[in-house]
Amino acid sequence: MPTRLTHTRPKGLAIWLILAGVIGWFAAFQLTVEKFHLLANPGASASCDISFLVQCGKNLNSWQGEVFGFPNPIVGLAGWVAPIVVGVAILAGARFARWFWWLLWAGMAFAFCFVLWLISQSIFELFTLCPWCMVTWVVTIPSFYAVTLHLLRSGVVPAPDAVRKVADTLMGWVPLLAIVSYAIIALIAQLRLDWISTL
């Protein structure tokens, strides 16, 4: 017997998806503009190149910055539209089928895994902290947590009632989960790059 769906109009999640989508899209747009600037002006510095450690240029010009054969920010320009549309649709009264929620989760899981890989590359291979990239990290991580917990609490993912209750409780703790995640990333970056001494 299918699990009964609840939380079919998660307004809080919808507002977050819109906010995160707009912030993520803007960061991707800024990185795209910087990439165009660097392509048009070889040897120039990006406007977000603040120091040897905090910069966008090295990331944009690396192979990690073009994993799919084109600049990574283009993925963000296309991808961040989805949560914006989903959030607006929820606020407008839309209710989605399970398969739709699974597709949204798959997209968020891809973004989350991709961001984790980019974080590792930035810290351990490129030795930089890209400002606009970090903005993307800041919104991707809690977005993945929120969508995952929503799928569990709502019954989209079949789970025992106890698991659904825990997911519903944790939904209110997403900001703290995100802050803990940021702190772990900051600690790893400090141990590897000693970024505090450059402030």
Rank of each mutant, 00 (worst) to 15 (best):
G43M: 01
A97W: 06
I23M: 03
G65P: 02
L60I: 10
L19T: 10
A111S: 14
M108F: 02
M108Y: 05
A20D: 04
I119H: 01
V54N: 01
L77N: 07
A44W: 06
F96E: 12
F52P: 04
S122A: 09
L126C: 03
L39S: 08
T136W: 03
T140Y: 10
C133P: 12
G87P: 05
L91A: 10
L31R: 08
C113Y: 06
F127S: 03
W25Q: 15
F96Y: 15
I141T: 15
I84S: 01
F100T: 13
E125Y: 11
A89I: 09
A82Y: 05
F100M: 15
P83S: 04
V54F: 08
G43S: 04
L53Q: 00
G107D: 12
A28N: 13
L126S: 02
L118I: 07
Q64N: 13
N41V: 01
I84H: 07
G65D: 05
G24Y: 11
V115F: 10
L19S: 14
P83F: 14
A111N: 12
W101C: 03
C113E: 04
V33L: 05
F29D: 00
G87H: 02
G93R: 02
F52V: 12
L19Q: 09
E125R: 10
V138D: 14
E66W: 14
R98A: 12
L116S: 14
C113I: 13
D49N: 09
M108D: 01
G93S: 03
V139M: 13
D49E: 10
A89K: 07
I90F: 04
L19P: 07
F114H: 10
V33C: 01
E125H: 15
I141A: 08
S122T: 03
F36A: 15
W102H: 13
Q30W: 01
K58L: 09
F96A: 14
C133E: 07
P83V: 08
V22M: 05
W137G: 04
L126K: 02
N72P: 11
W80S: 09
E125V: 15
G57N: 09
P131S: 01
V115R: 00
T136M: 06
I23V: 13
F127N: 06
S122D: 10
A89Q: 03
S143K: 03
F96M: 14
C48K: 02
I123P: 14
P131R: 00
F124A: 03
S45D: 11
A109I: 15
A106I: 06
A109L: 14
W117F: 14
S45W: 01
Q55N: 07
Q121F: 07
H37K: 10
T140I: 08
I84T: 03
M108R: 11
C56F: 05
I141S: 02
S47V: 13
F112D: 08
L19V: 11
G24I: 10
V138Q: 07
C133Q: 09
G79M: 03
L60G: 07
A89W: 13
R95V: 15
G21F: 05
